[in-house]
Protein backbone atom coordinates (compact mmCIF):
# COMPACT_ATOMS: atom_id res chain seq x y z
CA UNK A 1 0.00 0.00 0.00
CA UNK A 2 1.29 3.43 -0.95
CA UNK A 3 2.44 5.42 2.08
CA UNK A 4 2.56 9.19 1.91
CA UNK A 5 3.93 11.51 4.55
CA UNK A 6 5.36 14.97 4.99
CA UNK A 7 8.60 15.58 6.82
CA UNK A 8 9.71 18.98 8.07
CA UNK A 9 7.61 20.52 5.29
CA UNK A 10 7.89 24.27 4.75
CA UNK A 11 5.88 25.82 1.91
CA UNK A 12 5.92 29.41 0.68
CA UNK A 13 4.51 31.60 -2.08
CA UNK A 14 7.38 33.90 -3.05
CA UNK A 15 8.61 34.98 0.41
CA UNK A 16 5.33 34.45 2.29
CA UNK A 17 5.59 31.25 4.33
CA UNK A 18 2.27 29.39 4.38
CA UNK A 19 3.20 26.09 6.00
CA UNK A 20 6.15 25.76 8.34
CA UNK A 21 8.08 22.69 9.49
CA UNK A 22 5.09 20.35 9.30
CA UNK A 23 5.24 16.60 9.90
CA UNK A 24 2.28 14.49 8.84
CA UNK A 25 1.76 10.79 8.34
CA UNK A 26 -1.29 9.96 6.18
CA UNK A 27 -2.86 6.71 7.45
CA UNK A 28 -3.01 4.31 4.48
CA UNK A 29 -6.41 3.03 3.42
CA UNK A 30 -8.24 5.60 5.55
CA UNK A 31 -10.05 8.88 4.97
CA UNK A 32 -8.07 11.86 6.24
CA UNK A 33 -9.79 15.25 6.34
CA UNK A 34 -7.86 18.51 6.71
CA UNK A 35 -9.71 21.45 8.24
CA UNK A 36 -8.76 24.92 9.40
CA UNK A 37 -9.65 28.58 9.05
CA UNK A 38 -9.22 30.41 5.74
CA UNK A 39 -5.58 30.86 4.70
CA UNK A 40 -4.30 28.36 7.27
CA UNK A 41 -2.38 26.53 4.55
CA UNK A 42 -4.63 23.46 4.20
CA UNK A 43 -5.03 23.65 0.40
CA UNK A 44 -1.33 24.47 0.05
CA UNK A 45 -0.49 21.38 2.06
CA UNK A 46 -2.71 19.27 -0.20
CA UNK A 47 -1.03 20.71 -3.31
CA UNK A 48 2.37 19.86 -1.87
CA UNK A 49 1.26 16.27 -1.15
CA UNK A 50 0.41 16.04 -4.87
CA UNK A 51 3.80 17.59 -5.86
CA UNK A 52 1.97 20.58 -7.40
CA UNK A 53 4.10 22.73 -5.16
CA UNK A 54 7.79 22.46 -4.41
CA UNK A 55 8.72 22.70 -0.71
CA UNK A 56 11.19 25.33 0.50
CA UNK A 57 12.41 22.91 3.17
CA UNK A 58 11.60 19.32 3.97
CA UNK A 59 9.89 16.87 1.65
CA UNK A 60 6.79 14.87 0.85
CA UNK A 61 7.75 11.22 0.90
CA UNK A 62 5.98 8.65 -1.25
CA UNK A 63 6.95 5.18 0.02
CA UNK A 64 9.96 6.78 1.63
CA UNK A 65 11.24 8.65 -1.43
CA UNK A 66 10.99 12.39 -2.03
CA UNK A 67 8.02 12.92 -4.36
CA UNK A 68 9.81 15.66 -6.31
CA UNK A 69 12.68 13.36 -7.21
CA UNK A 70 10.36 10.69 -8.67
CA UNK A 71 9.36 10.71 -12.36
CA UNK A 72 6.10 12.64 -12.56
CA UNK A 73 4.31 9.93 -14.57
CA UNK A 74 5.20 7.35 -11.95
CA UNK A 75 3.74 9.64 -9.26
CA UNK A 76 0.63 10.10 -11.43
CA UNK A 77 -0.02 6.35 -11.24
CA UNK A 78 0.06 6.48 -7.43
CA UNK A 79 -1.35 9.86 -6.41
CA UNK A 80 -4.34 11.59 -8.00
CA UNK A 81 -5.53 15.07 -7.09
CA UNK A 82 -8.68 16.93 -7.94
CA UNK A 83 -8.05 20.66 -7.57
CA UNK A 84 -10.68 23.06 -6.34
CA UNK A 85 -13.31 24.05 -8.94
CA UNK A 86 -11.60 22.75 -12.10
CA UNK A 87 -12.86 24.05 -15.47
CA UNK A 88 -13.63 21.62 -18.30
CA UNK A 89 -13.01 22.59 -21.94
CA UNK A 90 -16.13 23.74 -23.78
CA UNK A 91 -18.17 20.92 -25.28
CA UNK A 92 -16.20 18.02 -23.75
CA UNK A 93 -18.27 14.91 -23.05
CA UNK A 94 -18.21 13.12 -19.71
CA UNK A 95 -16.67 10.10 -21.42
CA UNK A 96 -13.85 12.17 -22.95
CA UNK A 97 -13.16 13.90 -19.64
CA UNK A 98 -13.02 10.63 -17.70
CA UNK A 99 -10.88 9.06 -20.45
CA UNK A 100 -8.29 11.80 -19.99
CA UNK A 101 -7.71 10.46 -16.49
CA UNK A 102 -6.03 7.51 -18.16
CA UNK A 103 -3.15 9.46 -19.64
CA UNK A 104 -0.52 8.42 -17.04
CA UNK A 105 -1.15 4.84 -18.16
CA UNK A 106 -0.80 5.62 -21.86
CA UNK A 107 2.19 6.07 -24.14
CA UNK A 108 2.40 7.62 -27.58
CA UNK A 109 2.52 4.23 -29.22
CA UNK A 110 -0.37 2.81 -27.14
CA UNK A 111 -3.08 5.43 -26.80
CA UNK A 112 -6.07 3.37 -25.76
CA UNK A 113 -6.23 -0.19 -24.35
CA UNK A 114 -8.76 -2.62 -22.93
CA UNK A 115 -7.49 -1.71 -19.46
CA UNK A 116 -8.30 1.95 -20.20
CA UNK A 117 -11.75 0.95 -21.45
CA UNK A 118 -12.46 -1.03 -18.28
CA UNK A 119 -11.09 1.63 -15.95
CA UNK A 120 -13.30 4.29 -17.54
CA UNK A 121 -16.41 2.07 -17.43
CA UNK A 122 -15.68 1.23 -13.78
CA UNK A 123 -15.13 4.90 -12.87
CA UNK A 124 -18.39 5.90 -14.56
CA UNK A 125 -20.26 3.11 -12.78
CA UNK A 126 -18.72 3.93 -9.39
CA UNK A 127 -19.78 7.57 -9.68
CA UNK A 128 -23.22 6.81 -11.17
CA UNK A 129 -22.32 8.63 -14.39
CA UNK A 130 -22.70 5.75 -16.86
CA UNK A 131 -25.98 7.00 -18.32
CA UNK A 132 -24.59 10.52 -18.73
CA UNK A 133 -21.39 9.35 -20.46
CA UNK A 134 -22.11 11.11 -23.75
CA UNK A 135 -23.50 14.32 -22.30
CA UNK A 136 -21.39 17.49 -22.53
CA UNK A 137 -19.97 18.39 -19.11
CA UNK A 138 -21.09 22.03 -19.43
CA UNK A 139 -24.73 20.92 -19.66
CA UNK A 140 -24.63 19.01 -16.35
CA UNK A 141 -25.79 20.26 -12.95
CA UNK A 142 -23.13 21.28 -10.42
CA UNK A 143 -23.38 17.99 -8.55
CA UNK A 144 -23.18 15.89 -11.71
CA UNK A 145 -20.22 17.94 -12.93
CA UNK A 146 -18.33 17.31 -9.72
CA UNK A 147 -19.12 13.59 -10.06
CA UNK A 148 -17.70 13.66 -13.59
CA UNK A 149 -14.43 15.21 -12.34
CA UNK A 150 -14.23 12.69 -9.50
CA UNK A 151 -14.80 9.95 -12.10
CA UNK A 152 -11.81 11.31 -14.01
CA UNK A 153 -9.64 11.07 -10.90
CA UNK A 154 -11.04 7.59 -10.18
CA UNK A 155 -10.18 6.41 -13.71
CA UNK A 156 -6.59 7.36 -13.00
CA UNK A 157 -6.67 4.35 -10.59
CA UNK A 158 -4.32 5.77 -8.02
CA UNK A 159 -4.08 4.20 -4.55
CA UNK A 160 -4.02 7.73 -3.10
CA UNK A 161 -6.71 10.26 -3.96
CA UNK A 162 -6.48 13.92 -2.89
CA UNK A 163 -9.52 16.21 -3.11
CA UNK A 164 -9.42 19.96 -2.53
CA UNK A 165 -12.81 21.07 -1.21
CA UNK A 166 -14.83 18.68 -3.40
CA UNK A 167 -18.12 20.10 -2.07
CA UNK A 168 -17.50 23.76 -2.99
CA UNK A 169 -20.43 25.38 -4.84
CA UNK A 170 -22.71 22.38 -4.22
CA UNK A 171 -26.01 22.49 -2.37
CA UNK A 172 -26.33 20.45 0.82
CA UNK A 173 -27.87 17.35 -0.79
CA UNK A 174 -25.11 17.21 -3.40
CA UNK A 175 -22.45 17.79 -0.74
CA UNK A 176 -23.66 14.70 1.13
CA UNK A 177 -23.87 12.81 -2.15
CA UNK A 178 -20.24 13.60 -3.08
CA UNK A 179 -18.94 12.78 0.41
CA UNK A 180 -20.79 9.45 0.40
CA UNK A 181 -19.26 8.73 -3.00
CA UNK A 182 -15.76 9.46 -1.66
CA UNK A 183 -16.46 7.14 1.28
CA UNK A 184 -17.51 4.41 -1.18
CA UNK A 185 -14.23 4.82 -3.03
CA UNK A 186 -12.36 4.40 0.22
CA UNK A 187 -14.34 1.45 1.60
CA UNK A 188 -14.79 -0.47 -1.64
CA UNK A 189 -11.35 -0.10 -3.20
CA UNK A 190 -9.32 0.65 -0.09
CA UNK A 191 -8.05 3.92 -1.55
CA UNK A 192 -6.28 6.32 0.75
CA UNK A 193 -8.27 9.56 0.66
CA UNK A 194 -7.11 12.98 1.80
CA UNK A 195 -9.53 15.86 1.42
CA UNK A 196 -9.80 19.45 2.48
CA UNK A 197 -13.26 20.37 3.78
CA UNK A 198 -14.75 23.58 5.11
CA UNK A 199 -17.60 22.14 7.15
CA UNK A 200 -16.38 20.86 10.51
CA UNK A 201 -19.44 18.68 11.13
CA UNK A 202 -19.07 16.97 7.77
CA UNK A 203 -15.36 16.54 8.47
CA UNK A 204 -16.16 14.84 11.77
CA UNK A 205 -18.66 12.54 10.10
CA UNK A 206 -16.53 11.43 7.19
CA UNK A 207 -12.98 11.47 8.61
CA UNK A 208 -11.23 8.47 10.06
CA UNK A 209 -8.37 10.83 10.76
CA UNK A 210 -8.85 14.56 11.27
CA UNK A 211 -6.05 17.07 10.80
CA UNK A 212 -6.77 20.53 12.24
CA UNK A 213 -4.47 23.25 10.94
CA UNK A 214 -3.75 26.70 12.26
CA UNK A 215 -1.29 29.22 10.80
CA UNK A 216 0.57 26.65 8.73
CA UNK A 217 0.97 24.14 11.55
CA UNK A 218 -1.00 21.16 12.81
CA UNK A 219 -2.97 22.22 15.88
CA UNK A 220 -4.36 18.75 16.54
CA UNK A 221 -4.85 15.46 14.72
CA UNK A 222 -6.43 12.09 15.32
CA UNK A 223 -9.88 10.50 15.64
CA UNK A 224 -12.44 13.34 15.36
CA UNK A 225 -14.16 12.22 18.58
CA UNK A 226 -10.92 12.62 20.48
CA UNK A 227 -9.76 15.78 18.77
CA UNK A 228 -12.72 18.11 18.41
CA UNK A 229 -13.49 20.00 21.60
CA UNK A 230 -14.99 23.44 22.17
CA UNK A 231 -11.57 24.66 23.36
CA UNK A 232 -9.88 23.53 20.14
CA UNK A 233 -12.50 25.17 17.92
CA UNK A 234 -12.15 28.41 19.87
CA UNK A 235 -8.38 28.26 19.59
CA UNK A 236 -8.28 27.40 15.87
CA UNK A 237 -11.26 29.26 14.44
CA UNK A 238 -11.66 31.98 17.09
CA UNK A 239 -15.26 30.86 17.52
CA UNK A 240 -17.09 30.19 20.77
CA UNK A 241 -19.17 27.03 20.47
CA UNK A 242 -20.69 24.00 22.04
CA UNK A 243 -19.65 20.56 20.90
CA UNK A 244 -22.41 17.95 21.20
CA UNK A 245 -22.73 14.43 19.78
CA UNK A 246 -24.23 14.32 16.28
CA UNK A 247 -27.71 12.78 16.85
CA UNK A 248 -27.25 10.51 13.80
CA UNK A 249 -23.59 9.46 13.89
CA UNK A 250 -22.56 10.35 17.45
CA UNK A 251 -19.50 12.10 16.01
CA UNK A 252 -18.72 15.58 17.39
CA UNK A 253 -21.07 18.30 16.19
CA UNK A 254 -20.07 21.92 16.51
CA UNK A 255 -22.82 24.38 17.41
CA UNK A 256 -21.54 27.93 17.02
CA UNK A 257 -22.34 30.62 19.55
CA UNK A 258 -22.52 34.26 18.58
CA UNK A 259 -23.13 37.72 20.04
CA UNK A 260 -26.84 37.33 19.42
CA UNK A 261 -26.93 33.67 20.44
CA UNK A 262 -24.80 33.38 23.58
CA UNK A 263 -24.29 30.17 25.57
CA UNK A 264 -26.90 30.79 28.23
CA UNK A 265 -29.69 30.17 25.70
CA UNK A 266 -28.50 26.59 25.17
CA UNK A 267 -29.43 23.70 27.41
CA UNK A 268 -27.00 20.84 26.99
Amino acid sequence: MTAIRAEGLTLAYDDRTVVSDLDLQIPPGRVTVVVGANACGKSTLLRALARLMRPVHGAVLLDGRAIHSLPTRQVARQVGILPQAPVAPEGISVLDLVGRGRSPHQTWWRQWSTADEQAVAAALAATGMTDLAHRPVDELSGGQRQRAWIAMAVAQQTPVLLLDEPTTYLDLAHQVDVLDLVTDLNRRDGRTVVMVLHDLNQACRYADHLVVMRDGRIAAEGDPAAVVTAELVTEVFGLDCRVVPDPVTATPMVIPLSRHHPARAVTA
Partner: peptide, 21 residues
Protein backbone atom coordinates in the same frame (compact mmCIF):
# COMPACT_ATOMS: atom_id res chain seq x y z
CA UNK B 1 2.85 14.22 -31.05
CA UNK B 2 2.07 17.06 -28.62
CA UNK B 3 -1.70 16.62 -29.07
CA UNK B 4 -2.29 14.13 -26.20
CA UNK B 5 -0.41 16.43 -23.82
CA UNK B 6 -2.54 19.38 -24.94
CA UNK B 7 -5.60 17.31 -24.04
CA UNK B 8 -4.33 17.11 -20.47
CA UNK B 9 -3.34 20.77 -20.42
CA UNK B 10 -6.88 21.69 -21.51
CA UNK B 11 -8.09 20.55 -18.06
CA UNK B 12 -5.87 23.14 -16.37
CA UNK B 13 -2.21 23.21 -15.43
CA UNK B 14 -2.73 21.54 -12.05
CA UNK B 15 -4.71 18.65 -13.52
CA UNK B 16 -2.09 18.26 -16.27
CA UNK B 17 0.65 17.92 -13.65
CA UNK B 18 -1.56 15.56 -11.63
CA UNK B 19 -1.87 13.42 -14.77
CA UNK B 20 1.91 13.17 -14.99
CA UNK B 21 2.56 15.80 -17.68
Amino acid sequence: ATAPALNSLALGEDVAVALGR
